[in-house]
Write a protein that binds this DNA or RNA. Sequence first.
DNA 1: TGATGTTTGCAATTCTGTTGCATGCGCTAC
DNA 2: GTAGCGCATGCAACAGAATTGCAAACATCA
Lengths: 138, 138
Amino acid sequence: MIADVEKRLEAAGIKPTAMRNLVLEYLLKQGSAISLAELERGLAPVDRVTVYRTLKTFEEHCLVHSINDGTGAAKYALCQEDSGEVRHHDLHVHFYCNSCKETFCLPKTLIPAVVLPQGFISEEVSLVMKGVCERCSA
Amino acid sequence: MIADVEKRLEAAGIKPTAMRNLVLEYLLKQGSAISLAELERGLAPVDRVTVYRTLKTFEEHCLVHSINDGTGAAKYALCQEDSGEVRHHDLHVHFYCNSCKETFCLPKTLIPAVVLPQGFISEEVSLVMKGVCERCSA
DNA sequence: TGATGTTTGCAATTCTGTTGCATGCGCTAC
DNA sequence: GTAGCGCATGCAACAGAATTGCAAACATCA
C-alpha cells in the first residue's frame, strides 16, 4: 500500500517523502474531509506546519481540494482519481452532517447551473449542504 | 430613520439600544455583506466584542445571516424583510467579487434544487459563487 | 429605592492560518 | 568521496478571527 501511495504522489508530480506518504495514507483511509487540526491529531506527534505545507503542496498539484463548510476551519479531501477528466474546480456538492459533524464529498452530485443576474461573471462555485448523512439517518 | 431602525429591531424581537441601532443602521446603509472587522472600523471607536455579540443576537433573531465566502472571516448581511414568506435558510446565492473583494446577496437568484444521494437529508444549503460582479465587469 | 436582569467594555484566551529561519537530508558535479 | 545545492522538515513566532469571563453601567419593575 505504501507503494500505491507513492505511485499516486509521483503521478501527481510530487516527490514522495515519509511525511507525504503518511498524510496521503491517512487521507485515503479517511472517508470524509478532515481539517488540519484533525490530521495533526491523527498523525501525532507531527508538526502542524509541516502537515500544513504538505497539504498546500497536495493542493497545488490537485491531489486534494479544500472545502469551507462553515465550521471555521478548512477541510481537505482527496480529489477524484479520474485524471483525464474535465478539470473540475470542485464541481461536486459537499455535505456537512449536523449529527456526526463530518464533511463528505458527493462526487456524483454535481452543482446545478445557476443563472446569474446580468453583469455577473462566474469563475468558481461552491455548494455546501448541511443536514443528516446517510449513516446518521439510517 | 432611527425610528425605522428601532421598529425593525422590535419586529425581530430585539430590544433596541444605541449600539444595536448603530449596527443595524450601518448594515442598512451597506450594499454588500461585511465582516466584523469592517463593521468595527466603520463604527469606530466601538468595542469589537460588543459588535460581535450584537451580530450574534441579530443572527439568532433572523435579522441577519452570516456568509462564509472563503476569505477567512465571516460576513454578515441583512435578511430579506419578507416576514411572512417561506422561512428561507439563506436560499439565495451569494457572490464574491474577485475584483472588488465584496460579497453580495443575490436575493432573486435562488439556489437550484439538488438531488442528494439516497439517505442524505438536507436541512440547509449555501452556495457561494466567485467571479466578477456587475459593477466591476461593466 | 432596591433588586434583578440585560447590555456593554475590557482583558485575556483559543484556534486557524501563515511566515521566517535554521537544520537536515538527498542528489549531483567535480 | 566530498563539497555544494536545493528541497523538506521542525521550531518559534506572529496575525487575525472567534470566543469567554468578569465587572461596571444601565434599564426595569416591584
